[in-house]
Design a protein around this nucleic acid. Structure first.
Length: 189
DNA sequence: AGGATGATATCC
DNA sequence: GATATCATCCTC
């Protein structure tokens, strides 16, 4: 049983970097949600980078809208949205404020208190208990955050095209999905 | 392979 | 105000 009480949020500077760098750096770190008296923890094993206006696969491709306000906000906050009327997806906002960039969290390896599957962005949010009430929430905080795990395992990072963005023209093929090679919790494809 | 299910962006 | 679309998941 890991020492859950000692887990600390990564600092704002972690997120205020190049989005692809953050997407890679998030792999292997722990997503922590303190909710309903329990601490839910999953190890991030799959991410996708969304590079802001101009990235035709990004929600911010055509500039700010009411929905994407958080994604244009300061780094280290959550951008959560509802997709297909029933699934939530969680992103962490990256880069300088106003860049409209974020990293989608796509899959976790269960560590503590995760019931059911957590591979795939919708299942991840369901298992962690994340929904739109977390929209814009500061991840440099006590309730929902990302932490350095107590012990670091070595792994290899692989990349591929992002999933579900075939409509995005030449942006669909860019290798902006990152995952821990060989990890069984990575979503299919 | 197809349906669920509702918010959102973009049109009129 | 209408409608097409969607960074998905589950069942058939």
């Amino acid at each position: 049983m890991p020492e859950l009480d000692h887990l600390q949020p990564l600092p704002r500077e972690f997120y205020a970097r190049d989005t692809q760098q953050v997407a890679r750096a998030l792999l292997g770190r722990w997503l922590v949600h303190r909710v309903e008296g329990q601490c839910r923890v999953g190890r991030i094993v799959e991410t996708e980078a969304y590079l802001g206006p101009g990235d035709l696969a990004a929600h911010t491709a055509r500039g700010p809208t009411p929905r994407t306000r958080a994604m244009f906000g300061p780094p280290g906050h959550a951008y959560v949205y509802l997709i297909y009327g029933m699934h939530h997806c969680m992103n962490v906002v990256t880069g300088p404020e106003g860049s409209g960039t974020a990293v989608l969290l796509r899959a976790l390896e269960p560590v503590v208190n995760l019931d059911g599957a957590c591979n795939g962005p919708g299942r991840l949010c369901r298992a962690m208990g994340i929904d739109r009430s977390h929209y814009g929430q500061d991840l440099v905080g006590e309730e929902l955050f990302i932490a350095q795990p107590p012990e670091d395992a070595h792994f290899t990072i692989a990349s591929s095209a992002r999933i579900g963005v075939d409509y995005a023209g030449e942006w669909a093929a860019k290798p902006l999905r990152f995952y821990i090679q060989g990890n069984p919790c990575v979503s299919r494809r």
